[in-house]
């Protein structure tokens, strides 16, 4: 029962459920971005709650860059099967054909083609008028200013200086044909809230979040996991087994592991309290330059 949730998680849960129902009641063709990570797992769990006893009345969408951890893909397939949900998987075929990869083309170009462009293609193809994303305001400075219902032009652009004022829980859902809204039900959650909720609700997550012996390469002070044979080693680098886990998941060549012994949810929550770095530290694409997230978001990144 929700009664066992601490009060702050109950309030966050109810807020997210309200937001999801508001989308379903106002939009014709919503979709939920499912990135397989812990935030997506929480978002999906909340969707199961919001529409019970009905199933969530929208499909999931996964933008597959083809460079995700193998365990993520296995977890994705297992999850949709377990919950009986509809999922669309989209890959930017032009990018794939051109062999765009994170090693040769740089994280910035690669992200633009295989994530941002791929996402726009998938949203256009599906004709979706609203798309749920699992982004949280505490993740990054420009996220802190994003609305819960975030308006996008017909070209998926975000104009941070011209956002609709958002008062109370009165979300303005009005759009014209071609325009869309990105909706962030987890806006007010923090990383700690996510972990506490996963623990309290016993939500399944990708095993990569738990510490285990994994093959990693030390590069620029980061630990990159060699998830498959496509991993390229620079001169002098070697793969070694270390006890690591991931605080955030994405494309394996761009996602750093942390050394950790936390192999249970309780241990992860405890580690959270002692952490001295933010989770995005492990996301290589955020460090290109200061303000790079705002730039990517203006271009349509989630």
């Amino acid at each position: 029962m929700p009664a066992q949730l601490p009060p702050h998680l109950r309030r966050l849960e109810a807020e997210a459920i309200f937001i999801m129902r508001e989308v379903v009641a106002n939009f014709e063709n919503p979709v939920m971005l499912y990135s397989i990570g812990k935030d997506s797992s929480v978002m999906l769990h909340l969707a199961m709650k919001a529409f019970h006893p009905a199933k969530p009345p929208f499909p999931l969408l996964h933008v597959d860059t083809t460079w995700k951890f193998r365990e993520m893909i296995a977890f994705r397939d297992e999850t949709v099967k377990r919950l009986g949900l509809d999922i669309k998987v989209h890959t930017n075929q032009e990018g794939k054909a051109a062999g765009i990869n994170p090693f040769d083309h740089g994280s910035s170009n690669y992200t633009q083609v295989m994530k941002t462009e791929a996402l726009k293609q998938a949203l256009d193809a599906g004709g979706y008028d609203a798309a749920f994303g699992g982004a949280r305001r505490d993740e990054e400075k420009s996220r802190a200013k994003e609305r819960v219902f975030s308006f996008r032009s017909a070209h998926h652009g975000w104009d941070p200086k011209n956002q609709r004022p958002e008062l109370w829980s009165l979300y303005n859902t009005r759009i014209r044909t071609g325009e869309t809204i990105r909706v962030f039900p987890l806006s007010n959650w923090t990383e700690l809230d996510i972990w506490q909720y996963i623990a309290a609700e016993n939500i399944p997550i990708v095993p990569l979040y738990f510490a285990a012996e994994r093959p990693v390469v030390a590069r620029n002070g980061q630990l990159i996991m060699a998830d498959d044979q496509r991993m390229r080693l620079l001169p002098g680098e070697k793969v070694e087994m270390r006890r690591v886990r991931f605080r955030t998941l994405g494309c394996y060549p761009l996602t750093a592991a942390v050394e950790s012994d936390a192999d249970t949810l309780d241990a992860i929550v405890e580690e959270m309290f002692l952490a001295t770095t933010s989770e995005r530290q492990g996301r290589l694409i955020d460090h290109d330059e200061s303000g790079s997230m705002e730039k990517k978001k203006r271009e349509g990144y989630f």
């Binding site: 702050h8 305001r137 420009s142 200013k145 200086k161 956002q163 705002e294």
Partner: peptide, 29 residues
Amino acid sequence: LLVDGLEAEREQGITIDVAYRFFATEKRK
């Protein structure tokens, strides 16, 4: 500078939009 998130704000040195921030103590979020 921690909270003035958008580039324009940092350049102008003013806050031009609502930013939401989160912290917790042992008693409250």
